[in-house]
C-alpha cells in the first residue's frame, strides 16, 4: 500500500527522515529538536494516493546540466521521483556551542539485498553548492532489508545556513531566502546504478505550534 502513498519506488521505501539538533542538558540528558521530519507512516489501500506535481515546474530549482533532475527523470523509473515540501521548525534556541550536534538520520527498506548510495546535493538558485555521498549496506530484519543512515553530521555549510536564516528578523524574509534553497537526494543501487529514489526537497518556515510539517508529492510528467 505504500507505493503511491509514501516515498517508495518498487525497489526502495523511505521509512523515516529527520534533520535535528541535539543540545546537551546535563551529562546524561539532551534535548532533540527536529528541524524537519518525515515519520513512519502505515498507509492502507483505502488511503488516497499522493498528489502529483509536474516535474517541469521545478526543473530550474535543481541542477539542470549533466546528471540533473531532467536527465535523471528521463532515465527513470518514473515511480521513484518525489517532491517534499517541508515547513521547517526553526524555533530552537541556537547558540554557537561545540557540544551541539547537528545531524540527519534516515531509514529505508527493500525486499532486495543491495548496497545503496545516497547523494544529497544542496542547491542555491538551482546550482549545487555542496554534495554529500554516503554508502549503506543492508541489514536483514523481520523479513526485509533495512538501510540506516544514522546521525550523519550536517555539513558546515548547512549549519551556517541555518544560523543565518535564524538571524533574519521576519518569517517572510526567511521564506524569501528559502525560495532559492533546495536539496536533491538521489538514492541509487551502487552496483547497477539504477535510481531507487529521487527526492526533491523545498522549504518554508513553519508557523505551527506543533513543529515541523510536510507534504509529499509524486513527480510526474504528463
Amino acid at each position: 500500500p505504500w507505493q503511491g502513498r509514501s516515498i517508495a519506488s518498487s525497489k526502495l521505501h523511505m521509512l523515516e527522515f529527520s534533520a535535528f539538533l541535539e543540545q546537551p542538558q546535563d551529562p546524561e540528558t539532551f534535548n532533540k529538536h527536529l528541524f524537519v521530519h518525515i515519520g513512519q507512516s502505515n498507509p492502507t489501500f483505502s488511503d488516497p494516493y499522493l498528489e502529483a506535481v509536474d516535474i517541469r515546474q521545478i526543473y530550474d530549482k535543481f541542477p539542470e546540466k549533466k546528471g540533473g533532475l531532467k536527465e535523471l527523470f528521463e532515465k527513470g523509473p518514473p515511480n521513484a521521483f518525489f517532491l517534499v515540501k517541508f515547513w521547517a521548525d526553526l524555533s530552537a534556541n541556537l547558540q554557537d556551542d561545540s557540544s551541539f550536534f547537528y545531524g540527519v538520520s534516515s531509514q529505508y527498506e527493500s525486499s532486495e539485498n543491495m548496497i545503496i548510495t545516497s547523494s544529497t546535493k544542496v542547491c542555491s538558485f538551482g546550482k549545487q553548492v555542496v554534495e554529500k555521498v554516503e554508502t549503506e549496506y543492508a541489514r536483514f530484519e523481520n523479513g526485509r532489508y533495512v538501510f540506516r543512515i544514522h546521525r550523519s553530521p550536517l555539513c558546515e555549510y548547512m549549519i551556517n545556513f541555518i544560523h543565518k536564516l535564524k538571524h533574519l528578523p521576519e518569517k517572510y524574509m526567511m521564506n524569501s531566502v528559502l525560495e532559492n534553497f533546495t536539496i536533491l537526494q538521489v538514492v541509487t543501487n551502487r552496483d547497477t546504478l539504477e535510481t531507487l529514489l529521487c527526492i526533491a526537497y523545498v522549504f518554508e518556515v513553519s508557523t505551527s505550534e506543533h513543529g515541523a510539517q510536510h507534504h509529499i508529492y509524486r513527480l510526474v510528467k504528463d
Binding site: N180, H210, Q213, Y217
Partner: peptide, 24 residues
Amino acid sequence: SKQEQVPMRKRQLPASFWEEPRLA
C-alpha cells in the same frame, strides 16, 4: 550568474503546496 526565476507562487502547483498542515 543568477537567472531570473519565476516565483514559486506563479507556478502550477497544487493548492496544498501553500497550506501548512496543522497536525499535532
